[in-house]
């Protein structure tokens, strides 16, 4: 770990906006994203070497972030 903390682990559903878009980030890079308006669920099952792995987490984080932003922009 470089001391860089990744966002929040642990058994929570994180609301991203009032449309109900949410993310469930987990340990070892597992993540689920839900976009109710498009009925899309993205599951990221790839495992990182560490529960919190900043090196692998960065690109994954950017991917999740961009996907959420894109979904928000596309929603009616």
């Amino acid at each position: 770990m470089s001391g860089l903390r990744l966002l929040v682990l642990g058994y929570r559903t994180w609301l991203i906006d009032k449309a109900g878009r949410c993310a469930l980030p987990g340990a070892y890079g597992q993540a689920v994203m839900v976009d109710p308006s498009s009925k899309l669920v993205v599951v990221h099952a790839a495992a990182h070497a560490e529960p919190r792995d900043s090196a692998s987490g960065g690109p994954q984080f950017r991917f999740l972030h961009s996907t959420l932003r894109t979904l928000a922009a596309l929603s009616p």
Binding site: G3, L4, R5, L6, L7, W14, L15, I16, D17, K18, A23, S54, G57, G58, F61, R62, L64, H65, S66, L68, R69
Partner: peptide, 13 residues
């Protein structure tokens, strides 16, 4: 109402 998260586009301290 639950809190709303705005994640930054890079991992954040």
């Amino acid at each position: 109402p639950k809190p709303l998260l705005t994640p930054s586009r890079e991992p954040a301290r």
